[in-house]
Write a protein that binds this DNA or RNA. Structure first.
Lengths: 107, 107
DNA sequence: GCGGTCGTTCACATCTTCTTCACCGCGCGT
DNA sequence: ACGCGCGGTGAAGAAGATGTGAACGACCGC
């Protein structure tokens, strides 16, 4: 997936360290499960762009998203909840109905 | 990070990304439904030229426009509304009575 | 075994979208 | 003035997409 050296992704007040499995929200560490983290990284790799569920599933789960599988939606929800609780003023994950999701620090 | 955004169409302050289903108006993301987006793309493929409803329907819906079907008009209206709200100073979609619609960034 | 977390799946709630209908005003020809 | 074709616009209903809480089993460390 990524480099082995100190990559650091910044998105608004979010700081993601893919190789460490660590996310800092405004400096405070977020507790994410593996799936949640992988999903966030998948989104983060395309900041500002719309990413389809298929693509997200491929990157965070591996393999192909089966028709009717809602795992992706469920985890988007879990992620949203945690991000929102950490940074209530932001809305990071935007839904584009029929297309997918977009990570963006701006409203 | 991935950088190949694929195709990217620019029309005035509009930036259309066909592969993503994303439109940026002056940098800000627009929220369009699938139909709205497809219609915009169909118009954008012929910027500055008049496109008939039949052609628009073929490209955005697929199949042939049935006599009496107003879907196209309705969605032109929805698109106009959203574009206008995003960029109030512009008038992108122009009606050519009896012929069709024309997308043009100029007033 | 016990108590935790985690990932998946289900069921239901809610929100969007799409289509279609109705009605409006406008311009045109008679 | 009248009727007619055309496009603009709002709204209703059904279909579809997404949000959300809960149940379940797998797994793991103790």
């Amino acid at each position: 997936m990524q480099t082995s050296h100190g990559e650091l992704v910044r998105i608004g007040d979010l700081e993601i360290r893919p190789q460490e499995g660590l996310v800092l929200a405004d400096g405070r560490a977020l507790v994410l499960s593996v799936r949640e983290f992988d999903l966030l990284v998948a989104l983060a790799r395309h900041v500002g762009r719309v990413v389809s569920r298929e693509e997200l599933y491929r990157q965070a789960w591996g393999g192909t998203l089966r028709r009717g599988d809602r795992s992706c939606d469920v985890y988007i929800h879990k992620l949203r909840t945690k991000l929102e609780r950490a940074l209530p003023q932001h809305h990071f994950i935007h839904t584009h109905v029929g297309f997918g999701y977009r990570l963006d620090p701006a409203p």
